[in-house]
Amino acid sequence: MTDMAYSKMTGKDFIASIILIVFSITIIVMSYTMPRLERRGIDPLSAPGVVPGMIGVVLLCLALILFVRSIRKGGYRIFQKKTHSTEEHRHQGALTRVSLTLLVSLIYAIGFLGHLNYSIGTGIFIFSFICLFEIRPGQPLKDQKRTFVFALIQAIIASLLITLVFQQLFLIDLP
């Protein structure tokens, strides 16, 4: 692992450890304030908050180890560090692709499902996913007709086939 990647991971560990510390303290507080059901004549040793509290304490200890270790390695400098421009460019590209994947997937799973006919929603999703990643922004759309046509054909065939196979052959409920 290179020095840069190493320090970047240390910085990420620093942020993760803070989130985990806050998270585990929340678990401990919520477990402590959880009813002990004494009025129902229940043994306090079997109270519902015992195990979550214990897990919260273990998580807190592990998060503190991570925190101390990242501090020692200078993880707190994450906000000051500047990355190399080529690496930053590559990282930006990956981030854009992941964000786009996430966006279309979320629109499909939360926006379409249950609100739109399953086959139509799935068809639109597959078509837009393929177009989004296969169309080259620099070139005129006229020259990319093939991509659109093939994406459309794949979207129609795939959505109909999935609906047919799952609903008719395997008797599965579709959203």
């Binding site: 499909y108 996913f129 393929i130 794949q154 799952f166 579709l174």
Partner: peptide
């Protein structure tokens, strides 16, 4: 290509978790 494969895999993920 994975750009053609991944949307289908995602629809399978949706069915797999819903059904």
């Amino acid at each position: 290509p994975r750009t053609k494969l991944m949307p289908i895999i995602f629809t399978l993920c949706v069915i797999g978790s819903f059904a």
